[in-house]
Design a protein around this nucleic acid. Sequence first.
DNA 1: AATCTATGAATGAAAG
DNA 2: CTTTCATTCATAGATT
Lengths: 513, 513
Amino acid sequence: MASPNRQTWPSMFRSKHASQLWQSQPDMSSSPPSLVSGSTAGRTFKSPFSGPEERNTDPKPRWNPRPEQIRILEALFNSGMANPPRDEIPRIRMKLQEYGPVGDANVFYWFQNRKSRSKNKLLRAAGSGAASRAGAAPARACAPAARQHAAASPYTTPQPKQQQLQAPHVSPTMMAPTSSSSSSSDRSSGSSKPVKPTTAAMDLLSPLAAACHQQMHYQPLGLGLQPATVSAPAATAALEEFVPTATDVEPIFLQYPQGHCLSAGELAAILGAQYMHAPVQQPAPAPASPAGMLLGLCNELAAGPTRSGAWIGAGGLGQHWPSGADQLGLGKSSETFNASAVATDVAHEDATKLGLLHYGFGLSSPPAVNAATTSAPTAVLPLPASSPETGAVTVASAAAAAAGLSNLFATTTAATSEAVTYSHLQEGEAEAADVGFAGTGVVPRGAAVVCIAGTNAVCNVPAGHLHVKTYFGEGAVLARFRSGRFEPLAVDASLGLTVEPLQHGDIYYCVLI
Amino acid sequence: MASPNRQTWPSMFRSKHASQLWQSQPDMSSSPPSLVSGSTAGRTFKSPFSGPEERNTDPKPRWNPRPEQIRILEALFNSGMANPPRDEIPRIRMKLQEYGPVGDANVFYWFQNRKSRSKNKLLRAAGSGAASRAGAAPARACAPAARQHAAASPYTTPQPKQQQLQAPHVSPTMMAPTSSSSSSSDRSSGSSKPVKPTTAAMDLLSPLAAACHQQMHYQPLGLGLQPATVSAPAATAALEEFVPTATDVEPIFLQYPQGHCLSAGELAAILGAQYMHAPVQQPAPAPASPAGMLLGLCNELAAGPTRSGAWIGAGGLGQHWPSGADQLGLGKSSETFNASAVATDVAHEDATKLGLLHYGFGLSSPPAVNAATTSAPTAVLPLPASSPETGAVTVASAAAAAAGLSNLFATTTAATSEAVTYSHLQEGEAEAADVGFAGTGVVPRGAAVVCIAGTNAVCNVPAGHLHVKTYFGEGAVLARFRSGRFEPLAVDASLGLTVEPLQHGDIYYCVLI
DNA sequence: AATCTATGAATGAAAG
DNA sequence: CTTTCATTCATAGATT
């Protein structure tokens, strides 16, 4: 038997794709092993017994994802594709193959590991601090509650090594470069015809998109806002607990109504996916959140940068921490370097391919949104209530405003292009933000704030990893405003917690999709 | 909730057997790893939180199958027991217990995972490479068709590191050691009386055997060769497609006539199974292949090493790749070492117990065989046709010859014993093989060849996972000739594809049972 | 060189 | 059976 080979999945592909176009690189995968081997195996173990079993040796070279590939994978992951359906894997692999040899197995393992590890990481982070106790009494929304891992936050904790970790770096992968869509767009451009999204839109989506679909409900742009479906209660409930305890994480999440909505990442992923095999013309589905908040997704190709974005700008509130800038990309020189390099090199290319620039969100007027958000009002707490040490950040509401998601991404990622768009967006929203803050008094404190589209609620959320959906409802997406631009906050696909812990002093905007 | 104990099945048994006799060994499951690391108790981890539940500490160490156990399991699996009936599980477990603590649940899970994973693996493998494109036009048998992942093959790819290669290790699990039957035979010996197989023979089989039975048709030895049932067409049809595409894998397989035949592995498994609970005296069923090729299975106990095996030797064709020897077991020192160790230690023991040495195949003169194989002739392609890069291996036919399966196993596994038998077999077939090659010119190239018993057809098959039945008919079993011995090629029970991909440059022999 | 860390790979166990 | 979770193994590359 064979047991020998350990690589179950891996082997198979290994050979295949690898060669395609990438062989050039010495690196990877395809390598050697699979064909041959089977070997692997072994459980190295010690088991004394029976002696020698071990064996193995299998050479099996392990796949070395290139940065570009990682970016793509990260983008997908951050977009909510925690574990791609089996059918999507080959598709993803194909995409990755453009950058080097990869096997389906590699993709499969990557997602598995990514999910598993991000989960553990977050759990630890959360767990160590408040989480553990949080389990007992989930603070109510906006409550000062969580001081989750006080220590956990990089700031407070003396990090031995510079823990590159997850920490602060905004993963480059998430950012969508602003590069012009022109280049790779040929394919995408091919689909100049914006499909009118309809509930049937999903049918038009590429398989990948379809896959993503599992995690969201599409709403035709036209339909836009189906306020009806909204249920304030759900939103309210969500607010009750914001920081799932380590153990409860799953349960808590699950307790909310099913249905999902697109996060910025998800959108990106989907778009990218579509791009992979279909022209941009693909219909853009609008996600509907069970919670009642809706955002129509529309194909911007034809329309151009129109958009009633869901992101709220916070022009006036500039005083995020001084560290803000550093955290963004400077944590590590290498990191920073890569980010930039990638951005120009790959990221940007990817962005184009992902089609991020071709789509935008259509924010539906959300009666539901208000209802949902409004339910939280009681939760609105005076900032002072939460002590700084708790690490809680303040959440402030602002009038809902619309901004093109594409713009958001553009600004987030590349300072180079689309700056205009960004500013545009920012300006448009500035007022609203201010308004919101003014009312709450949050702004003055300089505390981090999260603006909730369409509401005026203000509350502070625990600094640290936040379960956005639980806290703000299914359709919520957070963005951090730093250095004059918005950075979408990546949410761990598996846990639903923000990949980076919210920082006290930072300004966050909540987008209710 | 969850998470805590996950073990559904396990719980029940867990305790039971595990301790039985094996605890002694440090190694195992329980042991080291578990205790230590997981500290078992709980997820050691970090999960600080919530403390509730946890506790118990029952860390539930996960079962760590020993190599011997794996071998047995693999043997069973490869023998076609994709998913053993419930009743068989305890039986299998008992057998495994001889080597260490195991629970029924472990066995259950093992089979489930094995099946699932081998399926995925193969699907992808097939899919990614040739499969996708194969889908379009399944080459005809022996066609140069697949150039599945050309680049993929390790050979072509420049591996940065020394890719210890994949290679070739013949999994020890597959091999049946040549050890003398004496030792464990006591039980088996008890059944000195060879039961005359009859159609009713299956009734006499132990449950385990019966289980295996699902995948095969028993033919009484006496009946031997029921040429009548043979249908050339079926065989022909099979030849039409050899490499299922990723997507088509299942369908393709299913399109063939039902009915199964014993592969070397199956035989071994069955025998072993019988051994487990019944004395050797069990009747040996003869598998009948719907395709029309038949092989009588007889109990050699009484007769001694007689045998008209179905395996064809290729004494003269020594020129498999130079790497052949290396690949076999030298790829890595550890590998080699282990293999041998296991062979003497475990494997061999297993072999004895499996009763491999007590049985032999009776090759029925196969009118059908010829018909079936012959149908392929047109497909015979000049090796040159298939470029090396395509990764296709050449299949050559040779005059049918008979060799004892038992011998095959013996030679395959242990160089130590039964060498005589092997040489015997080899010699007998050398001529035939040469003849076949001579005609095709295959040999000269040093290409891998597959000799089909009873035919002269020569063709190349795609390197990579091959669906033997589809390619050569229901009764076909492939063996690789390496380092002077035959290694039966394991076939995935669920997919029917060879577990290890055929290697370009290797020599394969096809046995039509 | 020894170590550590991040992460690819593999696989037992379970849930659905 | 399919998918997911949890653990563990093993190794590349950074770190000291």
